[in-house]
Design a binder for these strands. Structure first.
Lengths: 135, 135
DNA sequence: CAGTATCCAAATTGATACTG
DNA sequence: CAGTATCAATTTGGATACTG
């Protein structure tokens, strides 16, 4: 399961992934997907990263309803699951970029279908005349 | 106990949908989808219901890792969101069936893409020779 | 059968302040 | 900039017992 770049044991993983089951070892396909995608902000963050690398602050700005803390935690989990990688530039001021792995990019169809449905739903809620936002 | 927030919540909605935002009124399509689909068991339950009506017990058997209580709660939320309907037959012993609404069925592409990805993921985890389960 | 009710532990999350 | 740390409040979830 630990296909991520870092060969770290997870002593603090108990902190960030307490109740989640080990990824993939579940009953059906949908559950397996949720074991990776099943956080409130994960699909949103991943969706933004479909477009390419993003810095931490950019992700925060794109996800204003999530707190900085939540974004950090969710990114860490996604990193541990091998969905994205964290690129640290040894600069001052610090610069960190997040990028989907190949594995993470394989989630694109799921994320796009989520967006498609959500936009249709929003259109229904807002009335058929309002402009569709591109996130 | 003064609720000083802008939007007043419905009295009983506070019980079953506490932290969730009002469905659909969110920033991007993915978030909108999550406002409806964003419960741990919801996608799984809905996925099973794609095949047709199911009784409460059947859903419990199909979702063994969720407790009866959780299944009840998630079903209630989905019902409130108009995703499924609850059909009560006035019989003894009681019989209740759950069925997707038209709105709920519109989620089919999302659910199927989740299953597809999850099964590919499971195949990767289990090794390429194990048989694929149909949930 | 299809739930509720209750209790309780554990986990999630927000707000805020602080740091290399 | 990109986070941590800490505290507190809320929510989730399991176990169990009970009911029309």
């Amino acid at each position: 399961m630990n296909v991520s770049v870092q060969t770290e044991i997870e002593p603090q993983a108990a902190e960030t992934r307490p109740r989640r089951r080990p990824a993939g070892r579940t009953g059906c396909g949908v559950e397996a997907t949720l074991s990776v995608l099943g956080g409130v902000w994960k699909p949103v963050l991943l969706f933004h990263l479909l477009r390419g690398k993003l810095r931490f602050n950019a992700l925060c700005r794109l996800t204003p309803r999530a707190t900085q803390r939540m974004i950090t935690l969710q990114l860490r989990e996604l990193e541990n699951d091998g969905v994205l990688r964290r690129i640290v530039y040894p600069e001052v001021p610090p610069k960190v970029e997040y990028e989907l792995t190949e594995f993470g990019r394989s989630l694109e169809p799921v994320l796009l279908s989520m967006r498609a449905w959500g936009e249709a739903f929003q259109a229904r809620m807002d009335g058929p005349d309002k402009p569709t936002r591109t996130c």
